[in-house]
Amino acid sequence: MTLLKLDNIHTYYGNIHALKGISIEVDEGEIVTLIGANGAGKSTTLKTISGLLYPRRGKVYLGDKDLTKFRAHEIVKMGVVHVPEGRRVFSRLTVMENLEMGAFTRKDKDGIKKDLQRVFELFPRLEERQTQVAGTLSGGEQQMLAIGRALMSRPHILLLDEPSMGLAPVLVDLIFDTITELNKQGMTILLVEQNALLALKVARRGYVLETGRIVLSGPAQELAENPQVREAYLGGA
């Protein structure tokens, strides 16, 4: 069943036409990846879904709801949660306060407590550093916090923008294991990655973005074997 659907999206930054008619579908329970070179429009696509940007044309549907009619904070309440590029943790808030902000829309105290436990099981490092100010965490710990914080809102669908950026290989593995694990527990994930090889490994389907347009799409396996994709994104190997 289609959970999220982008229908011919055009998004602009002032006069810059960043997305030139993007159509994407994400089914319930899938991992779908969006790959492409720098500046292709991957982050812009996620921002348009989460309501940080409004498309000039086209619609974003969550089920049968038109998300372009809602503001970013309302879209979060509908279960669409965006972990932006570059982590963007609140550096002057403590780890615990960051996680509390993740649960901002929720009122069920017991549920929040349970999810906090779950985040701490996923990332024990965060539990050790609860009272530490987030700005003093290492890059990897900040990425864990960014993901953990998003999980605290109990998302239905998670939009991840380059979760592996700037991380050591061990941490990249940890993050990707986490992504697979969350998906197994039923979470739908739209994953943007520079690291196309890894992304296509965990995803079921993928879209290739080039200067604001989708140029290729299909099952992840097929994309990974496609000579064009290998040439452009997988180092030609």
Binding site: S50, G51, L52, R71, A72, H73, V76, K77, V81, H82, V83, P84, R88, V89, F90, S91, R92, L93, E97, E100, M101, G102, F104, T105, R149, S153
Partner: peptide, 21 residues
């Protein structure tokens, strides 16, 4: 109050937490 501090730091990220900026 925490939401206020979050907004002071990063309005976009705060909106992505579901905070009405």
């Amino acid at each position: 109050g925490k939401a206020m501090r979050a907004v002071a730091e990063d309005k976009e990220a705060a909106a992505l937490m579901g905070i009405d900026v």
